[in-house]
Design a protein around this nucleic acid. Sequence first.
DNA 1: AGGAATACGCGAAGATTTCGCGTCTCTGAC
DNA 2: GTCAGAGACGCGAAATCTTCGCGTATTCCT
Lengths: 154, 154
Amino acid sequence: MDHQIDEIDARLLRIVQRDADLSAAELAERVHLSPSACHRRLQRLRQAGVVQGHVALLDARRVGRPTTVFVEISLSTQADEVLDAFEAAVARIPDVLECHLMTGAYDYLLKVVARDSEDFATIHRRHLARLPGVAKLQSSFALKTVFKTTALPV
Amino acid sequence: MDHQIDEIDARLLRIVQRDADLSAAELAERVHLSPSACHRRLQRLRQAGVVQGHVALLDARRVGRPTTVFVEISLSTQADEVLDAFEAAVARIPDVLECHLMTGAYDYLLKVVARDSEDFATIHRRHLARLPGVAKLQSSFALKTVFKTTALPV
DNA sequence: AGGAATACGCGAAGATTTCGCGTCTCTGAC
DNA sequence: GTCAGAGACGCGAAATCTTCGCGTATTCCT
């Protein structure tokens, strides 16, 4: 079912993680393979679930979301139903880009994008503070995103 | 130079942020426009820099990076040269996916992906702890990523 | 050594992107 | 009010690109 990823696959993945607009012919040239072989490998990687899909990446500033905030959340209990309810509710907030269940001092870490700090205040009050089971919220603002990539090391 | 984003643009952006594999014809159907008009709008959005590019998203687990760690870093000083040196050095570590300059209790927040906790220990010792100007590191492990998206609200 | 499985390159068929062209609508000036 | 210019649309054709069948080469396992 899931094949081993060889060096050529790895190179293909490194390329398409950074730019998926390249044609099979251009890829072929970079990995020294024919376009059809490239295409088949990518197709196989997609089918195996290694490649989850292709997306367009937007410029957060140009769509009016220049502010990133990380929010640490502590719940009042760790009861399963509370966690499930929390997770279901947080997934419905479009301003929240990521939600991680954490070890350590707090329970969840959220990555949130806002129009500005006032907008974040609104998101905080209207959405985050109202999530089920929340005991404590602590927000940290990013002054600047030094860099950011979706490309995993392969 | 940069046009206003109207409702049709917004709908296109919402779609291609989630799936950029759709053909212009399929997009056209969803936004009630001709394929050529769709294509032209997307082309314009790309040229305006709203769409930064297209990438393939991989399954972190399937490429052997199931572990996400957030690392809070305090520097010994805030001198410009130290910050610049730190940022340049951290950008060279492929295990680091994001680097944010933060307000508050610490200076930088890093998002790191590792093969497992032992692998993270190695990354920590060999790369993070050796970054220039680092005074203190505090790592928090994600037990589970509840969800994650690259799609900004538009 | 034999044979199955896997992957390759080639080349054609089928889609899709891409672009010129004519039309329509909206805006602003007279 | 109407006329000119800008901007966007749909249509349709040309150029590209994807996609797949086919025959061959290589590998690996028995």
